[in-house]
Amino acid sequence: MSILVYTEVSKGKIKKASLEAVNYAAHIASKTGTSATAIIINAGETSLDDLGKAGASKVLHINNSAINTSDSQVLTRILNHVADTEGAQMVIFSNDLTAKAVAPRLAARMKAGFVPGAVDYPNIDGGSFSVNKNVFSGKAVATYQVNSAKKVISLLPNSFQVTTDGAAVAAASFDVPADLLVSRIKVKEVKRESNELSLPEAELVVSAGRGMKGPENWGMIEDLAKQLGAATACSRPVSDIGWRPHHEHVGQTGIAIRPNLYIAVGISGAIQHLAGVNGSKTIVVINKDPEAPFFKAADYGIVGDAFEVVPKLIEAVKKFKASQN
């Protein structure tokens, strides 16, 4: 018996969100007297040491270039096969875009109760298992009870601090039967936003809205983000009119993020925008209108003109960084 964790590599490293999921699985394993087994597909040359350090007792590397990793049907068959082989009753994912396609499929295949986007450790009491998840776009939390013996849980990214103070374990290679790999989808093109900090994984985010007046004024937003080591985001109208790329749009209809720090510049704080950011640990709002609704959802507020305030912040961050060295 073990708890499986699906993990991935990105930019030559195990994804931070995957390490969170391994930590999470190891925590549940220690509570239930089992162990955590990490699965990784086609990791190439990437060191897998962090998986053991994050708490996996076993690391299974499936190395097979015939696997179409863009096909949720193939990944589901593989994970189901590993779960069967390992006698796993529970599979943990980080709730990223891969998990959104694969985790519900796998749950249906295993007939496992599924909780997408858990925000806490589960409450396990004898035979009963429940875990919290955000609902109503972050306006409430619901406690989901899982009734089935098998369970699939995906973890909301950035919900936990990652720890990697365990010991590395050697990865074992794991082979999957070829008939599981039949794929009906063909990937024609992959477009990656190179070099940019991935917004869902970013710990610091600088975001701006229509208050910036035009795309030509984003230089200072990018500069502030760069000085802080933050990712950039925007409100929906800004991406709708094409001032910023679509993948930066946060909110109800964009992506939901929960960084440690969210700085909102010239964003009014409409309820649909808040839905995507109100899980952030600390929120700073800069707006020239003292009545802007966003101040009600903020920890720190500055009433002022972005064109005056942001350059001051850039200078202050530069000074701060210099003092840290």
């Binding site: 990105s10 891969t98 063909k186 990937v187 992959v190 477009k191 936003e193 991935s198 869902p200 993948h247």
Partner: peptide, 9 residues
């Protein structure tokens, strides 16, 4: 997809 987009047939 994480970090970008994909075109699939």
């Amino acid at each position: 997809i994480d970090g970008g987009t994909e075109v699939i047939e």
